[in-house]
Amino acid sequence: MITVRHAQDRGQASFGWLDSQHTFSFGHYYDPQQMGFSALRVINEDKVQPGAGFETHGHRDMEIISYVLSGQIAHKDSEGHIQVLPAGEFQLMSAGSGIFHSEYNASDSETLHFLQIWIEPDTLGIQPGYQQKDFGQSAGLTPVATPGGDNGTLRIRQDATLSQLILEPDSELQVDISAGRKLYIHQIEGQLLSGSTTLYPGDGAKVENQQQLMLRNQGSEPVKALVFDLP
């Protein structure tokens, strides 16, 4: 079964310096039917004005992933990490027992556009951690975050895998789904045919009770999406 969450149905927040679209309930946006999916709790699509950003604030017991679509994030946290996250790179911050951080648009002229993703951990109170990496633009399904951090992936404290999907025009990929597992797809670029359902940028799809899923790019532009394998 595939359940689509259309981009235009997401929650909206605008603060002048920030425009944000919430796939799931977040902040002042509350929908009891959209409280997350399995361990996936938040997907926010944020656009931050030049020079603006999120002042220092705290988190605990959450796996927080940032993926920059355009622009750059200037990151600073209480564990001593001071980094710039450019477009195309993934950042995974394990909040664990508690961490404070700030995120700013590193540019004075360009809008920052990024995805903020929260996944609930399966272990509480761990030592906070920070990871950052560019996984390239290879076609197919590229693992980004895995429970064991295998093969150079980011290590996530949950029985979940995040992968980057890139499909060139007129190509397809079959995804096998293990028994009892769920998938969530967040569409970023292009038009992705998921089973018999077409996803457009900003759309999401919950996939449940299926053993296989065929993903196709029948358009003229490359497709980019994030695919979450969840418990």
Results as ranks from 00 to 15, higher is better:
Ile2Glu: 11
Gln8His: 14
Arg10Asp: 00
Leu18Glu: 12
Leu18Thr: 10
Gln21Lys: 15
Ser25Ala: 14
Phe26Ala: 05
Gly27Trp: 15
His28Lys: 12
His28Gln: 15
Pro32Glu: 15
Met35Gln: 12
Gly36Ala: 03
Ala39Val: 02
Leu40Val: 04
Asp46Gly: 08
Lys47Tyr: 11
Phe54Tyr: 12
Glu55Lys: 10
Thr56Gln: 13
His57Tyr: 06
His57Asn: 04
Gly58Cys: 04
His59Phe: 13
Glu63Gly: 06
Ile65Trp: 01
Ser70Leu: 07
Ala74Glu: 14
His75Gly: 11
His75Trp: 09
Lys76Ala: 14
Lys76Thr: 06
Lys76Glu: 11
Glu79His: 11
Gly80Lys: 03
Gln83Val: 10
Gln83Trp: 07
Gln83Ala: 13
Leu85His: 05
Leu85Asn: 07
Pro86Leu: 04
Ala87Asp: 05
Ser94Met: 03
Ala95Gln: 06
Gly96Asn: 03
Ser97Gly: 11
Ser97Pro: 07
Ile99Gln: 04
Ile99Gly: 01
Glu103Gln: 07
Tyr104Ala: 09
Asp108Gly: 07
Asp108Trp: 01
His113Pro: 03
Phe114Leu: 15
Trp118Pro: 03
Pro121Phe: 04
Asp122Phe: 06
Thr123Gln: 14
Gly125Thr: 08
Gly129Ala: 08
Tyr130Gly: 06
Gln132Pro: 03
Lys133Arg: 08
Asp134Lys: 02
Phe135Gly: 03
Gly136Cys: 08
Ser138His: 14
Ala139Gln: 13
Gly140Lys: 05
Ala145Ile: 00
Pro147Tyr: 06
Pro147Trp: 07
Gly148Gln: 15
Gly148Lys: 15
Asp150Pro: 03
Gly152Asn: 08
Leu154Ile: 02
Arg157Asp: 05
Asp159Trp: 02
Asp159His: 13
Ala160Leu: 01
Thr161Leu: 04
Leu162Glu: 04
Leu165Asn: 00
Leu167Gln: 11
Glu168Thr: 12
Glu168Asp: 15
Ser171Gly: 07
Gln174Phe: 04
Asp176Met: 09
Asp176Val: 08
Arg181Thr: 05
Leu183Gln: 08
Ile185Phe: 12
Ile185Ala: 02
Gln191Val: 06
Leu192Tyr: 00
Leu193Val: 07
Ser194Arg: 01
Gly195Asn: 11
Gly195Ala: 10
Ser196Leu: 10
Leu199Met: 09
Leu199Trp: 01
Gly202Asn: 09
Glu208Gln: 14
Arg216Cys: 05
Asn217Gly: 08
Asn217Cys: 13
Gln218Leu: 15
Gln218Lys: 07
Val223Gly: 01
Val223His: 00
Ala225His: 05
Ala225Pro: 01
Asp229Val: 09
